[in-house]
Structures are given as structure tokens and as C-alpha cells.
């Protein structure tokens, strides 16, 4: 599973980076995206959902950042 580390990247650059990184992921594959607490975790999952991807889970890590797991859906 590919990990896309977007910690330290602000909105909306993090979303654009996630989109670019997901272009490299095969349809149907899962990827995990690391997001900072605050605005990034509020905005990015919602935007990726609107892009049509299937969000599988979201949990907060012990270090405080969030790990979003999603399945890439064909564009």
C-alpha cells in the first residue's frame, strides 16, 4: 500500500499533492494519506470523497497526525 505523507503541507496544496500522488495509484488499490490535525484533516478527506474515491477509514496516530485510508476509484 502506498503512503502519501502530507504532514506539514497546508491547504489547499495538500489536496492537490494528494490528487497528483493518486494518479500513480492503480484503480482499486488502497493508499494511506498522512494528514496534520486541524484544517488538513477537516478538508482533505472531504475533498477526496467529492472526487469519488472510497474512504475506508480514518484514525489518529499516537503522534497526533491522522491516517486516512482510501481506495482509488476510476476518474
Amino acid at each position: 500500500m502506498q503512503t502519501i505523507d502530507l504532514r506539514g503541507v497546508g491547504c489547499p496544496t495538500n489536496f492537490v499533492k494528494a490528487k497528483l500522488a493518486l494518479e500513480e495509484v492503480e484503480t482499486g488499490e488502497t493508499a494511506q494519506i498522512l494528514l496534520d490535525d486541524g484544517e488538513p484533516v477537516k478538508n482533505v478527506p472531504r475533498s477526496l470523497k467529492a472526487e469519488g474515491h472510497k474512504l475506508l477509514g480514518l484514525r489518529q496516530s499516537d503522534e497526533g497526525h491522522y491516517v486516512l485510508e482510501l481506495e482509488k476509484v476510476e476518474e
Binding site: 484533516v41 477537516k42 478527506p45 475506508l56 477509514g57 480514518l58 484514525r59 489518529q60
Partner: peptide, 10 residues
């Protein structure tokens, strides 16, 4: 619901 807590957070 997958208990992610985003709703409460937002």
C-alpha cells in the same frame, strides 16, 4: 459510521 470522529471534530 466508522468511528473516525471527524464529525465531532468539525
Amino acid at each position: 459510521c466508522i468511528s473516525c470522529g471527524l464529525c465531532a471534530k468539525n
